[in-house]
Each structure stands twice: as C-alpha cells, then as structure tokens.
Design a protein around this nucleic acid. Sequence first.
DNA 1: CCCTGGTCCCAACTT
DNA 2: GGGACCAGGG
Length: 869
Amino acid sequence: MSFLDQLNPQQREAVETTEGPVLILAGAGSGKTRAITYRIAHLIDNLGVMPESILAMTFTNKAASEMAERVEKLVGGLSVAKPAMATFHSFCVRVLRRDIEALRIPSGIPGNPPIGYTKKFVIYDENDQQQLVKSVMRRLGIDDKQTTPRSVLAHISWAKNHMLDPQEVYLQSADPKTERVAQIYAEYKKELAKANAFDFDDLLLETVRLLRAVPEVREYYNRRYPYILVDEYQDTNRPQYELMRLLAGSKHNVCAVGDEDQSIYSWRGADIRNILEFEKDFPEAKIIRLEQNYRSTQNILQAASAVVANNVQRKGKNLWTSRQGGTKVGYYEAPDGENEALFVADKISKYLREASEQGENSRVAVLYRTNSQSRLFEEAMRRYQLKYHVVGGFSFYERAEIKDMISYLKVIHNVNDTISLLRVINTPVRGIGKTTLETLERVALETGLSLWNAIKETIQRQLLPVRALAALKNFTDLIEDGQAMLAGNYVEHFEESSLGESAEITEEQSRTASRRSKDQQPFEDETFFDPMAFDFGPALEDTPEPSAADDSAVAGAPAFRDPGAPANTAEILKFLIDRTGYIKLLEEEDTPEAYSRIENLRELVNAAMDSRDRGETLDQFLDHAALVSDADSYEAGAQITLMTLHAAKGLEFPLVFLCGLEEGLFPHSRTFLHPDDIEEERRLCYVGMTRAMDSLIVTRAVYRRRYGTDLPEASIPSRFLDEIPSQLLEELGTSSRGRSTSRAGAPATHEREVGSTHYAYEDEDQSVSWAARNKQRRRAPAVKTYNSIDNIAEFFASRGKKFSLPKLPMEEPRGVKGFRPGQKVKHPKYGEGTVYQREGDGEEAKITVQFPRFGLKKLVEKYAQLERA
DNA sequence: CCCTGGTCCCAACTT
DNA sequence: GGGACCAGGG
C-alpha cells in the first residue's frame, strides 16, 4: 500500500475509484501519467486484477511504452502477463487482424469466396492515399487542377473523422464541388476494398463498425478488457470516442484523462464535446480535478495561465504550484531567423556547459510551430558543434528506398495492393514503361481484374510485344518467389553466381558503412537511425519466445540458405535487395547520397531482424512500419531536442525555447479566419510554455524569409507575447553592451567568438519598456522590405540600435577551397572564368562563375572540379 | 524506354 | 527549399 502514500488526495481518489466511469481533468504537470500508472499498479497489486485485463489507450507508441515502463517499475516482478498498452490505431489493427473476417458476407455464387476484407489487409499511408485518389480522379475524368487530390483527400478524411459515408456527404452537399468529392469518395472506398487496404481513418472506423455489427466480437473484447483507460482524452475524435464507449461495455469501468486547455487536435476531428458528453453517456461518472502543478515555477505557470485565460471557450481552472518565484520568462527579439537560431544555440551551449560543470546532465527543448523551422536550428547547432535530436520531419519510412522495399513486401503479402504494385513494378527499372502500363490498366479495367491478375492474363495470352512480356514475367517471378519463400516452399532456381557478392549484407559491412556515412555527414540522418522508430511498444498479446535459431543470418550467411522452411521478413528483404540488384545499382552510382541510401536499407534489414527476434510475422512488421509516428522517435536521453509544439505534448524539460512568436507563423496564418482556430493556437502556446520546468525563453525574428527564394519579410510580434504579463518577462540579448567594439578587427579565438556577441545587438533605448516598444511596432508595420544584411543593419541603426553580423570562423572542410569573388578559376568543361559571387560556406558553398563562352554558372564548390587559374 | 533539366506550384499540426 | 510533372534528347 505504500506507493499510494506518495499521492495527493485528488490523485489518490483518481487511483482508488476503480469501479464505474471516471473522468480525470488533469492540468498541465499535475501528475496525470502518475495517476494513470498508479491506478494500474493499484488494480494489479492491491485489488488482484489480472494485468492482461487492463487496456490503456494512448495517442503515440512512445506514450504507451513509457507508461508500460513506469507500471513495471511500480509493480515489482510483473509476471509474463502485462496490461495492454497501445495507441488507438495499433489496437484497432490488432482487432481487425483478428476479427475482420466476421464482417464478410457470402458472395452468393457457388465456389466464389465471400466478399469483404480479409486478415491480409494492408494499410495505406498518406502517399498511397493520394496516389489512389489521383487515379480515381483520372478515371472519372475530373480535372485535378481546380479540384486537387490534396483537398479531396482532406475532405474525405474530414468526413471519416465525423463518421460520414459517401452517401451522407452527397446528401449534405450544397455545391457541385462537394458532390464531386462525394463521388470520388465512393469510388475511393471501392478501390480500397478491392485492394484489401485500409487508410488510417478506416482503422478506427472499421473497428467501430465491427464492434457494432457483431455482438460476439464486441462481447469478447468486453470480457477480455474489463478495465479501460484513455489518455489525452481531450484529443479523441468521434470514432475514438465510439470505440471507447463500445469497449466500456455494460460495466463502464472506463477512466478518461484529459485537459481541455491542451486540446490541440481539433483539425484532426478531436471534439471537445467528448468531455462534456462523457457525463451524458456515463451519468454515474465521477469527475476528479488535479490542479496542483508539480512541474513549473510560479512565474512560468502564471505566464502560461495568463495567455490561455484569453480563451473564451473554456471552463477555467486554478492551477497552482508550490515552486514560488523562479526566473522570469526570457524574451529575445532577433533581427532575423538565422540570428534567432544562433542565439538559441549559444544559450544552449552555455547552459549545458554550466550544467555539466556542476555535474548535472540537463535537457533542453527547442519548440516551434512548423517543421520547416527546424532547418535553421539544425544549422546553428552544427555550428556550435552541439549534438541534437530532431523529432519528426522526414521520417525513415518516407524515404524512397525504404518505401520501395516496403512496397515489395506489401505486394508479396497481398498482390491486390495495386498502389504498391505500381510503385515497384519498374523499380529499379526493368523495362516496364508507360505504354506497357497503359495497356495493362486497360486490360484490368475491361476485364474487371485487379492489376496483378491483369498482368498474369496479359502474359498468358501474350497481349504485348515479347520484350515487354519478358520484363513482366521477370517481375511476376520475383513476387511469386517471394511468396514461395514466405510460404516455405521456395526452390532456388538461379545460380549462386547471379547473386552479386556486393548485395550480401554482413555485420562487418554494415559497420563500415555506418562509419563511413557518419564520417562524411556527421549530423545528417540523426533521426533516421533511431532504433526506437522500430519499437512496436508492448504487444497486446504475449509474443512468443524469440527463436534462438539462426543468428548466422546476422553474420552474413546467404539470405535463403534454408529452403523449405518459411522465410522470415529479413530473409525476404535480403532476397529482394539481391534479386532486384537494388544495392548494387546504388553502389554503381557511387555518390554520398547513394551510400546513405544503402545504409538505410541495411538499417531496414536490421529492423526486420529485430522484428524476427520479437517473433513477429510479415504483416506485423508491415503494421509497425505503417504505424510508427514521428513523435515516437523522441529520445528521453537526448540533451537537445528539436520538435514541433504538437510533438512536445506530454513532455517536460528544465529549459524550453519557444521560437518564432510572430503573427502568421504562431499563431499560424491559416487560423486567422476562424476565432476557434485562434483559440486552439493559444492552447498550443499554453502546451509549449508549460513544458518548461525551470526556465522558459521565447523568441521572435523581426525579419523572416518565408520561402527559400523570397525576400525576408517584416514580422509582427505574436499576440501571445502581448498576453504574457510584462512583469513576468525579462528581455535578453542586451548583456553584450560595449563588447562588440572592443573586439572589432582583431580575430578572436574560436571559443570566444562563438560564445559572445555575434548574435547580440545593443539596445540604446532601455527606458522604453518592452511592451511599449512592442505596441509601437505593431501599429506601424514596416513597409520597406529588407533583403540583405546591410539593410538589416540599417534598420537597426534607424532605431538607435547596433546590429553586429554573425561571424563565425569556421574550419573549411576538405574539398572546399574558398574561392572569393574576383578570383580566376578553371573548370574542366567550361574553361577559365571569373568568380562572380559566393553563397553559403563550408560544405554548402555555391559559387557563381562568369565563363566567357558559357555565361554565368552556379556551381557547388565541393563537387565542381575548380582550380585556381 | 530512360534520363535530364526546366518549370510550376506548394509549404501546419499527425495516427 | 523541394517535390511533381513534363518536354525533349540520348
């Protein structure tokens, strides 16, 4: 019973109210996760509930596995049985894989299989969806200029999140455009069914449909999980809410935990009404409020509360903390985006150095509104030689080579997956071109066959020139051999010699490749090699013991040395890489990019091996690949984490930077039209601010470049800055007064230079308060566009401030020669020329050269074989 | 059939 | 900054 004593009275009530519906309204940092994990531990340890009868649903795999870890720590020596902790989507996939065929209906034709989805379904990601919508639109003859596939897909997803089917969308449509959407939606749905594929939204919808339609299935899950917990309840959408209701059964032992002020997913269909309707659907519900914040200092909490208090749509609550005072919220106004990033990097480097001098291992988060903002911060971190970790952005599974291999696996798993089939049918090129594909699609359309069957038909009836037929046969053989391997009746029928030695993946090679790529691009792809990205999190059911057999595969034995036994995913992958010559072709390319792609493929094989060690089958591996999210790549151990505000939900850091507080960026311009959307932005700001435990620094750039090519534009300070009470704010960046003159001229040491004043400017006008100046600027938005460093300096001068240029003495990487404007150079192809301009530095330096006979050419210095003339 | 280079258009958050 | 698409040459 001892662990219950660590809870405050409200938390304790939340933990001990185990029977009947409970809604826990938990403010930021109020020990929400603690309440949930203790509740689970209490159920198991003190009430003797079987662990496997508890189901906790979260939004990310990361949250699920963190919860599992914390429960395991509380419940000493948890047996083999574990509580089920999963994301909504992965839980649904499990249910569908087990029971979807209960929805099949007889075809009515003797000998024909029943109609409906089978257990072998695949999951379509956004890219696949888009391809499918495009092909549907093409077939329906709808112009994709005025009705873009993107917007159609957004509309379909909206409909699904509100549980509307195509007919309902059609009936509700008030304009021809929506009617068209309904039509496309209907066709899209049919095509998904034909391919035995679900999109993300379907996973929830179909599970709800299944549980509603088949009482036996519903009852099975009701019996199996008498205790249900739902995390981040404020972000559930309609299908998720229905799912929870269905799973709660008649016992209603459901515990939902949420915070209205942290609802940030309404655009994904999250419905705040779910919190209100909870009491309607569960009239006997007990509401418990957790209002003591254990995370932040009083200053931070007050500032955040003051911001969110501007929202009209909220019940309001009193969050309090015992951590009196604390440092004020820092504010830095950077001249531009680059400078903002350098400022942040500088502060972080000092902060971490001080922390380590005191023997502490601290953590910092840099939060921003949009993923594209990460680039500047990454560059700044590199300049300061800081190791950082980026959450989200371009994920491992979105890379072309990974998608290719996954698509091969998907086709082997399910040949009716036409979208994946089209992706790989000519990848790498094997002579199946546009004309061939057009014929095949016509055959498919005319016969009603799936594309795969149309190909088989075409080959059999020899409907194409011999060359094309051979190429097609080549492809179908490959897929069928893969299927045979999977089934365990593959008979090798090529010579060993045809397997290029280069395609063999050994641990040794893997290691050298890894070393090489790290040497060349020390910071690139940090996120892509994250093993966490492959962690399914705890399985719903107990996974079989990992097979002790064949570790030799890791050591580089041939991929399929054991014909006759069913192959595992890793073996099939190696076979595919081998037979397609994928790696071999990349090696022939012999570029850094190609090696990085090879490295990614090796990583994929490693992931498949891990999957095998967990005893997973091919479809489980594919489910994982489809369901890992960006947020899952968060590493709790990383010192510096860069991520969007959305990804930061649920996390905490001693020091937090909240960047880009500018109207149009944060709040985002797309939210301006609707007051409700602005309120959501404000909640997002609240979420960001309350991540901070000890210190919070907010920043803004006066001039920001919107797209790479455009001129920087003057920004207006975010309204959220105004909403922070001025007595809680402290302006930063003025501490370097006078220093910039003393170091003029003489080149300072690297360390000093980096650590001192390059981002700083002097503020001569400190008598005017920050808030007053802020107001001034807002009233008079600059009309002049500043497009160069000189203009920015001029801008600051006009305001009585001095602005010093970021100057960083950087060691030039090898291969970079540092040509300057005016120098004469010689190019192997273009001959002699004069350097006209130089952009960027180090690895990225581009120089523009004037060649007498060829005109101006822009060259990347690293690659262009330029010499001094 | 394949590759290249140019052009156009886009650029919010995520399972 | 970059992805998707197209035209034109190899």
